[in-house]
Amino acid sequence: MINDIIAIIRDYWLLLLIGQYPNGPLGGLANTLILSALSIALAFPLSILLALARLSKWPFLRWPVTVLVYVTRGVPLLMLILWSYFLVPLLTGADVPSFVTMLTTLVIYQAAFLSEVVRAGIVALGQGQMEAAKALGHGYFGAMRFVILPQALYNMIPSILSTFVSTIKDTTLGYVINVPDLTFAASQVNNQLLTQPFQVFLILALIYYAICWSLTHVAYRLERRITRKRAGLTGAGAAAVIAPAKIISEQL
């Protein structure tokens, strides 16, 4: 068993790492990480806008975002991927690679989840910050840009990291629309070997475990550090500031 696993890794490590890259599209672990990092990088700014819209006093900004958040919370990601697979080529009128389809879905999905995290972070700061900033002459955007968001976002770093972890786990669903990621590479290996599915999928699980475990661990360490720093900075009344650092994320 162990020998089989070592043999598979020795023979196929390049395929698992970068897919068929020089002769085909980039794939494997590299693509999984690029896809997740890009999704988070694009979803993050979007999530701030969504959170601000959700906290807005105008219903025409608040309602569409509330609906979006409930739809992403209530509909399986798989269903949303099928929607993008159908709609993105239809709307753009081009033959879109599955990577882009998956990226679109993940950006919308994770932005909706992150927006809840951002919103919780802003709400937990309390009204006083906004009032003080306004009293000092900041407008709404000035107060957000220089006072509220820097504090809220700093507290949220661990949550963003754990959203990154769930994004890595979400990218596996790209398998359904043939996104060339790590899961896809593993099933290619499995199709070539045919006789050792357990070993192949065990390797797959172990690779994901190693990556996600280390990132979760980093998030945990960061969270403790930020909590301590916040407690030290603001003294005894820091309870409200510590609260949003609690890791909120969707599981998959």
């Binding site: 786990k169 596996t172 669903l173 357990f198 999928f201 699980a205 994901y208 996600c212 599981q251």
Partner: peptide, 12 residues
């Protein structure tokens, strides 16, 4: 079970 994607667990 928390660090391996659910899909990969099902495939395994």
């Amino acid at each position: 079970h928390r660090n391996v994607p659910t899909l990969v667990q099902l495939m395994l």
